[in-house]
Each structure stands twice: as structure tokens, then as C-alpha cells.
Simulated assay, not measured.
Amino acid sequence: MTVNRRFLLARRPVGTPVPDDFALVEQPVPTPPAGGFVVRNCYASLDPAQRGWMDDAPSYMPPIPLGDPVRATTIGVVAASDTPDFAVGDWVMGLNGLEDYSVNQTGGFTMKVDTALVDSPSRFLSAMGAVGLTAYFGLTDVAKPQPGETLLVSGAAGAVGSAVGQIGKIMGCRVIGIAGGAEKCRRLTEDYGFDVAIDYKGKSVGQLAAEIRAAAPDGADVVFENVGGTVMEAELLNLAKKARIVLCGLISEYNSPEKVGVRNLWQVLAQQATIYGYLIMDYAPRFAEGGAVMADWMAQGRLRIDEDVQVGLENAYDAFMRLFSGANTGKLVLKIADGL
């Protein structure tokens, strides 16, 4: 290719992003800087966190500068190199952008991966990437559930939530999932092995709290939180003593300008619970360790990680918005190219 297409952040979204917040432009393919290399991006991860990076607000990562490509974890092939550390043809994963080609420097976030280990390179963005490992380390290292404990997962049909529930079952938990709609609830029990699925659609906080209580009369020992808002309010009314809440995401609030949050944090105090603000970036040095376990579980048929692969950089906006409409049916991935 002689053109580098780039999906840029043109203005900061207010509420739900609209197409005019972005621009798809064509620029020359970059050349590697001294000691650096250029990656041909083949797959990009689409995640709720990207919506937060679009705001000019304090966060764990700096906001995406206006005029820059939307930041994304990608996997691709080294297309040109000025360093012996990364040879042309090497498959690599790193934090780049929604664009055909990205410039990288040695010593950054980019790492080589062995695509012979997986059926598709996209697996390094799902089961063996940040999504699958968010579930793995969030349970095994942060929540540390014990056999027989009750695990409550919100956003349970999503990429992270569905993996959390399955790993919880492997660890001997009773697993309850909250999702939106009958089809997603069916997938929780039939495809992912959850013990109970609860549909939050059209229910008040009180109604949802009552359904959780019926499924977990002694309360939840571990809550893996991906949604926030009214769903989290209902969950907080059903905590067991000394419950552990892993706060992984708040997708219901990302497009809300008010950022209202939950109203009954008193329950955390009343039940002597703990809330742990959890970011997978802390576990980057241990990705190989966790990825090996995830791969082994998949090979044994104990873990199912679905992917929702959308095709074409020109479809980046529509693909990204699937996260907020609930249309995605697995880890959302944008396929940009096949490789060199």
C-alpha cells in the first residue's frame, strides 16, 4: 500500500459519539525513524475504555489528542524496520491507533507474538490479550474467589464478563450473570455455563435487586463490575459480608455527560466490603504467564472466547458503536488487513 488510512479523533464527543466526531483521512505511509519500525496493523481491539480516552479529563491514560488516530491495541506485522530487535515480517502486538500503519520505537509497549500458537492472530486481542487476561488476573489475583463462593458478574455477556464467569466456574464458584435481553441471557447459561442469568432490561433498581436476592439469598461474595449505574446499585444491595468488588468498568456511564454514578455506597460500609479499582496495565509483565493458562483452558474445552470481527477501517465508527448498542456478540475486533 502507498496510502496510510487513519481514523482520527476530530472533536471531543459530548455524550454518545457521532460520525462527525471522527475523520478518516489518507496520508503517506510512514518510514521507520532511526532505531524504530513501522507496523502494518491487521487487527485492532475495540473496547469501552476508548470512549473515556476521547474525553479531555483526568484518567489513567492521557486523552487522545485531537487530530490523532483513536488509540487502540493492535496486532500486525512489521512492514519496515531500522532496528535489529524487530525484523520485517515479525508479528507484534502493541498500543497503536486505528490506522493502516503505525510508527513504533524500540522499548515501547510493542511485543513480539507467536501466531503459530493460535488459530487467528486476533486471539491476541481476545483470549490471550488484554480482554481475556483482564478476566484472568481480575479473578485469580485480585478477587481470589474460593470454591463455593458466589460470583456476580455485570456485563456478563460481554467479552470480559463472559470470560470472568467461565473462569469463576473453573475456580469452583457459583456464578450469576447480569445481561441485557433474552438472547444474551440464553448465551450465559447455554454457551458459557453460568448458573443463573438475570435480564436487567426494563427493570427498576428494586426489581433487579429482588431478582439478584432470589438467586443469591446469602449475597454475592465477589462482584465483578463492568456496568455501573443502576445495575451496580442493585448489586450493592446484595453483598455478602466482606464482599470483594472488582471495579473493572462502568460502561453505562461512559456516554453520560453527567457521570451520576451509584447512590448507595453505604452498603459497602454496612457489609464491610472492599472496592478495588482494577486496571490490566499493571499485569502487562505477566501476560505470557496468564496467556499460557488461558490457551490451555481453551485447548481442554473448558473456556470459550467468542469474537465479533468487523471488517474494514472505513467501518470503524459503526463497529465501535456496537459496544454501546449491545450488538456485539463477543470480543469486538476490527479487521484492517490480512498482513504483508
Score class of each variant (00 low, 15 high):
11 R>K: 15
224 F>H: 10
89 G>W: 04
93 M>Q: 14
225 E>N: 01
328 N>C: 02
95 L>Q: 13
282 D>Q: 12
51 R>T: 05
20 D>T: 15
128 M>I: 13
333 V>D: 05
15 G>Y: 07
27 Q>R: 12
170 I>D: 06
11 R>Q: 12
127 A>Y: 04
147 P>G: 11
136 Y>G: 05
69 P>T: 04
72 A>L: 01
198 I>L: 15
207 Q>G: 15
284 A>Q: 08
6 R>I: 00
230 T>S: 13
10 A>P: 00
329 T>V: 08
244 R>T: 12
196 V>W: 02
1 M>S: 13
236 L>R: 08
167 I>L: 14
265 L>T: 14
12 R>H: 09
118 V>R: 07
313 L>A: 03
329 T>D: 10
83 T>R: 07
229 G>D: 06
212 I>S: 11
306 D>H: 12
24 L>P: 00
33 P>E: 07
267 Q>L: 04
7 F>R: 01
88 V>S: 11
18 V>Q: 15
189 T>D: 01
299 A>M: 05
205 V>N: 06
29 V>Q: 09
56 D>A: 15
134 T>I: 07
286 R>I: 03
163 A>D: 08
184 K>F: 07
137 F>E: 04
308 D>A: 03
242 K>L: 10
251 I>D: 00
183 E>G: 13
334 L>V: 03
98 L>C: 04
64 I>F: 11
65 P>K: 03
11 R>S: 13
45 S>M: 09
107 G>P: 04
138 G>P: 01
89 G>I: 05
221 D>R: 14
106 T>S: 15
241 K>Y: 07
87 A>F: 08
82 D>N: 12
175 V>E: 01
55 D>Y: 10
99 E>H: 04
86 F>E: 00
65 P>R: 04
204 S>I: 05
